[in-house]
C-alpha cells in the first residue's frame, strides 16, 4: 500500500518561518486544563517527592531525613514482593486484550442476531459498582461454601481457599480484574473494527482468503492502534491496583494473606494510613511513578515496531 499512494507533501516555503508571537491568547486557552493539571497532578507530585525525603507526622509536620525512607524501602522485602504481585496482576489482566479482540470480531460478524445484547452483557461488568462486584466474587471464592469450589468439585478438583491462601489470592484478584476489564476493551475494539473498510474483506474473499486468514491479515493488523492503546491503559491501571485487592481480600486485620498479596499501591496505603509512616508511603508512591513511566516509555518504544499506522 505504501508504494503507490504516498501523499505529496505541500512544498515548504523557502525561508524557515519565524516563530509567530501569539501573545498570551494560547496560554489563556490552555489555562483551564493547565491549571487543573498543575494543581491536581504536578504540584502533588512535587509535594510527594519532598515528603518522601522526610519523616512525616501522622497529622502533618515534616522532618527532613534524606534518603532514609528509600533505604528502608529497598532493604525491606515487601517492596519486591509488591512489585512481583503487581506485575503478575498486570500480566493476567493484559490477557483481556487478546480475548477482547476475538470477542469483538465475533460480535462484528455480519448478520449476527442480538449483537447489541451481547455487547451489553460484556460491558455490564465494567459499569457495575466495583465494590458490589467484589462482594459477589468474595462469596463465589469462599472456600467452604463458594460456587467456584463446588463447581470444581464436580470435576474432582479440590479448590483452595482462594482469598486466604498466599499465591492463590493474587490470582483470584487478577481473575476478577480480567473479567471486569474485558467489556471496556470489547467496546474500544468494536469501534476500531468499524473503521476497517469492508472492501478489504471483500477483496480478500475474492482472492480466496479463509476467515482465519482474514482475521490474521486484516483484522489484527488494522486493530493494532486500538490494541496498543488498550495495553498502555491496562498496564497503567495494573500498576495502580488497589481497590479490587482491598475489596476482594479485605484489610490485613481481616485477612493475613493480604501481606503476601500486596500490590504497590496497597503497600502505599498500608504505610500511609495503617502504620502511619507517611514518609515511607511517599517513597512508595515515587517508586510507582518511576515504574509506570518506565513501563509506558518501553511500550511506546516497542509500539513503533508493531503498530500499524496509515
Amino acid at each position: 500500500m505504501t508504494t503507490t499512494t504516498q501523499p505529496v507533501r505541500a512544498p515548504s516555503s523557502d525561508k524557515p518561518k519565524k516563530p509567530r508571537r501569539d501573545g498570551f491568547w494560547p496560554w489563556l486557552f490552555v489555562a483551564p486544563l493547565g491549571i487543573g493539571i498543575a494543581v491536581f497532578y504536578l504540584w502533588p507530585i512535587v509535594q510527594t517527592a519532598w515528603f518522601s525525603l522526610t519523616e512525616f507526622g501522622v497529622f502533618g509536620g515534616t522532618t527532613f531525613t534524606g534518603l532514609s525512607n528509600y533505604q528502608e524501602l529497598f532493604s525491606n522485602g515487601d517492596l519486591y514482593k509488591a512489585i512481583g504481585n503487581t506485575l503478575l496482576y498486570t500480566a493476567i489482566v493484559l490477557l483481556n486484550v487478546p480475548i477482547a479482540v476475538v470477542v469483538a470480531s465475533l460480535l462484528n460478524t455480519p448478520g449476527l442476531r442480538g449483537a447489541s445484547v451481547y455487547r451489553v452483557l460484556y460491558f455490564l461488568p465494567y459499569v457495575a459498582m466495583p465494590t458490589a462486584v467484589a462482594m459477589v466474587w468474595r462469596i463465589i471464592f469462599n472456600g467452604d461454601f463458594g460456587v467456584l469450589n463446588r463447581v470444581l468439585g464436580w470435576f474432582g478438583i479440590d479448590g483452595p481457599y482462594w482469598i486466604s491462601t498466599p499465591g492463590a489470592a493474587i490470582v483470584a484478584v487478577s481473575v476478577v480484574g480480567l473479567w471486569s476489564s474485558i467489556g471496556f476493551s470489547v467496546i474500544v475494539l468494536g469501534a476500531g473494527l468499524k473503521q476497517i473498510p469492508p472492501e478489504l474483506y471483500e477483496a480478500a474473499e475474492l482472492d480466496g482468503a479463509s476467515r482465519w486468514r482474514q482475521f490474521r491479515s486484516i483484522t489484527v493488523p488494522l486493530l493494532t492502534p486500538s490494541i496498543a492503546f488498550l495495553s498502555v491503559v491496562t498496564v497503567i491501571a495494573g500498576f495502580q491496583l488497589f481497590d479490587m485487592l482491598y475489596a476482594v481480600l479485605g484489610t490485613t486485620n481481616m485477612n493475613a494473606t493480604v501481606f503476601d498479596s500486596m500490590s504497590l499501591v496497597y503497600l502505599f496505603y498500608q504505610a500511609g494510613f495503617v502504620t502511619n509512616d507517611k514518609g515511607l508511603a511517599a517513597a512508595v508512591a515515587m517508586v510507582v511513578l518511576v515504574l509506570v513511566a518506565v513501563a509506558t516509555a518501553i511500550q511506546f518504544r516497542l509500539q513503533k515496531k508493531w503498530v500499524h499506522v496509515d
Binding site: N142, G143, D144, F145, Y161, I163, T165, A256
Partner: peptide, 9 residues
Amino acid sequence: SIAQLTDTT
C-alpha cells in the same frame, strides 16, 4: 482453620 476463618469469620 485460619484460612476457613478468613473466608467466613
